[in-house]
Design a binder for these strands. Structure first.
Lengths: 243, 243
DNA sequence: ACCTGAACACCGTTCAAGT
DNA sequence: ACCTGAACACCGTTCAAGT
């Protein structure tokens, strides 16, 4: 009998809710990785049996859907509200806001281990994702796109950022390497493998071995983002010319 | 004793090799899905025990690396050789070749179920991926990029296509829907959910509900690809102006 | 060199039964 | 309404032992 309980047996441990389960699932993923998330380990956190989790959630798939929905919620908070809305100034172009969104979104995904893996795997439509999309649609329309084009653009931007971070954080392996090498060893080995490819068949690859094995990822992300935004600008201009 | 064996017991079943295991793994993935691939089911295909697979392969992770490497090999064959090289004409721009590569690569990924899921998850560096990259580097340099910029561009293009297909084939769920709904039902429900969002808070989303729920994916893919290539073109032009 | 048998430490999920 | 116990049908991986 815990001392703090006011009456006999009414107030027990804080009652378990689906929200709390999702909280714990995200914590588990961020601390131990997505592969370590199991219904049993999740249940352990609350001192209950694995079977009990199924009272709150239909399946592990459903649980992961809820996790993704929550991550969208967090992204709306940290990226849209803090990075985009609050820093807004009067004279900035939609272009600049879009760039800040993309950079902020990448930072968010990088800050939450395996979040890109969970998010990229499933498209969970709900209020939270809708909030993200809504803001993007506004920005793209303000930039000069039609409603239909804005949907395409918003989707493409999300795909680009998520896909980029997914690859950025993906396990790296070299076919000729042992599977237990550490990442730095693998990178060295990779550079070596790339550099030693037959130069007649792989002139560019062997020449660029250093850039391939030791890439500047923020610069690479900005490069692709700039291509997209420059293409967007040009697209809008070529549209308005014909009107 | 099979009739066809020439001498006593020398020639048995065709001997198992790592290559054959990878073949079977890919077949399993394409027929039953990535989640259905297990060492036991793989072993069953050859009439051996799961433990025996470990004589050919260090772990399941290693097996998946080999699968990815093989998929890169297949992509080189079908996309680069058949789609890009053989259709090459004299007067086409690198721009056009790049577009054909991207479209062909997307088709390849779509044609092999779950291939985008396996490939996006792991970066397997070897001769096959190098072949893909080598060709892309050549194309981008021919388009006017430096060696370093070409590496960025090649990576960005691969990330875009893989990320796009990954989302295109990802399981679709609606937070308010039951998890067992069929895809068409889910799409209907999704459109309904999006359309019924409070119009004050989600003016663009609810207006674009139809486009969001029933998207023209080839057009969307082309839209993003065009942005990238248009951005590329402009980047090259702005570079040459300052030289 | 190649494969088995058996075990270990796990999974997700179901379901009658308890409180 | 919430949770347990026990079971079912699986996993990946290891390892002594067989041929």
């Amino acid at each position: 009998m815990p001392r703090s309980t006011p009456d006999k047996a009414t107030a027990r441990r804080t009652p378990i809710t689906t929200e709390l389960l999702v909280d714990a699932a995200i914590e588990l993923i961020e601390s131990d990785g997505l592969d370590m998330l199991s219904m049993r380990r999740l249940a352990d956190r609350f001192g209950i049996q694995a079977a009990s989790v199924y009272w709150y959630v239909a399946s592990k798939e459903h649980m992961l859907d809820l996790v993704v929905d929550r991550l969208h919620d967090m992204a709306v908070q940290t990226v849209l509200v803090e990075q985009v809305e609050q820093r807004r100034t009067e004279d900035e172009s939609p272009d600049q806001v879009l760039r800040r969104f993309a950079v902020g979104y990448r930072s968010f995904l990088l800050a939450h281990p395996d979040s890109a893996r969970v998010i990229s795997g499933r498209l969970v439509v709900g209020e939270n994702l809708s909030l993200l999309i809504e803001q993007l649609l506004t920005l793209f329309q303000r930039a000069g796109l039609s409603a239909k084009e804005s949907v395409h653009a918003a989707y493409v931007l999300l795909v680009y950022v998520q896909g980029f971070v997914l690859h950025e954080t993906a396990p790296l392996s070299v076919v000729t390497a042992g599977p237990n090498d550490e990442r730095s060893t693998t990178l060295n080995h990779m550079q070596q493998v790339l550099a030693s490819l037959p130069a007649e068949k792989f002139p560019n690859t062997s020449a660029a071995a250093a850039d391939l094995a030791r890439p500047d990822m923020p610069a690479r992300f900005a490069f692709g983002l700039d291509l997209l935004l420059a293409g967007l600008k040009q697209f809008v201009e070529s549209q308005s010319k014909h009107s």
